[in-house]
């Protein structure tokens, strides 16, 4: 049994919240470069150049890339041979979010109750997804999620007869309806299969994958590429002001499902697709 101090979890979560909001991962930065090179609309190109400049300013001036520094979504893969000492895992994570959002000058965007709507003042609680795995390490992914794009996300409970064409139509409909609201160029996370909640979770999780990395399943990879191409013919463009680059990537995860169903979830993410990964 390996012991990991709850404080170590807190320290890491704090640093990850801050870092994720000031710097995008190098793969997202490369995706911006490629987008700016391929965009044909002059206004679209100008917006992509502004977004590159925005990233530079965020890093040098230590100011969040976007003022919506998100609700902190945290994925933890906890090895079953790990014992968290000196506190609960959930409290350690929330304390990390609290410290990160306060000390890192990040916006507090969380209300304690969805209808009473009083701000919690420290961006807690996080949305925490824990999975128990083999081994004695803790894998943490922090993905602060903005709600301009979150609000445009959709779930479709398709019938098996709708098949792959139904999946394509659903994803395209979600991106088209999101239009300018999701802050394009977007990254589109798609979950196919499982149950109602499982497909939503896959759609969220797959947003933390690099935009350069394609699925290992051949037909899924083809679907990702085909959908990206179709989306980039919708004409929405950077900022939703017209152009070619509407999406930077389409990431799909799949899971076995029931004989009667074909759930599809589409989690929209803006170009500020923040995700940071550490293994303790």
């Amino acid at each position: 049994m390996r012991e990991i101090d709850a404080e170590e979890i807190t320290r890491n979560i704090k640093e990850m919240c801050i870092r994720a909001n000031y710097f995008l991962s190098p793969d997202m930065q490369r995706a911006f470069e490629r987008a700016a090179d391929t965009e044909s609309s002059p206004l679209g190109k100008r917006i992509l150049e502004q977004l590159k400049e925005n990233l530079k300013i965020a890093g040098t001036d230590q100011i969040p890339i976007c003022q919506d520094t998100g609700m902190a979504v945290v994925f933890i893969r906890l090895g079953q041979d790990v014992h968290i000492a000196g506190g609960s895992l959930r409290e350690a994570v929330n304390e990390g979010v609290r410290q990160g959002y306060t000390e890192g000058y990040l916006r507090k965007s969380v209300v304690a109750d969805p209808l009473e709507r009083k701000n919690t003042g420290d961006n807690t609680p996080a949305v925490l997804h824990v999975e128990i795995t083999d081994g004695d390490s803790v894998e943490i992914t922090v993905a602060p999620k903005g709600f301009g794009s979150e609000n445009m996300s959709r779930i479709f409970m398709l019938k098996p007869a709708d098949g792959i064409e139904g999946v394509k139509e659903s994803v395209i409909a979600a991106v088209r309806d999101a239009g300018p609201n999701a802050c394009p160029p977007v990254v589109v996370g798609v979950g196919i299969g499982g149950t109602f909640e499982k497909c939503a979770l896959m759609a969220k999780h797959t947003l933390t994958r690099s935009p350069d990395e394609r699925s290992e399943i051949p037909y899924v990879r083809e679907l990702e590429e085909e959908l990206l191409d179709k989306i980039n013919h919708l004409g929405i463009g950077p900022g939703g002001l017209g152009g070619r680059i509407t999406a930077l990537a389409v990431n799909i995860e799949t899971y076995p499902t029931h004989i009667a169903g074909l759930p599809v979830a589409v989690n929209m993410c803006c170009h500020v697709n923040r995700h940071i990964h550490r293994v303790i």
Partner: peptide, 30 residues
Amino acid sequence: GKGRRNSQVKEAMVRNGAVYLAAVGGAGAL
């Protein structure tokens, strides 16, 4: 702001001679 407006807003804009402008979403540092 950013994103679309509904038809009631557009009608009220025309009625009052107002305009709606978009700034680039996600360029908060800039």
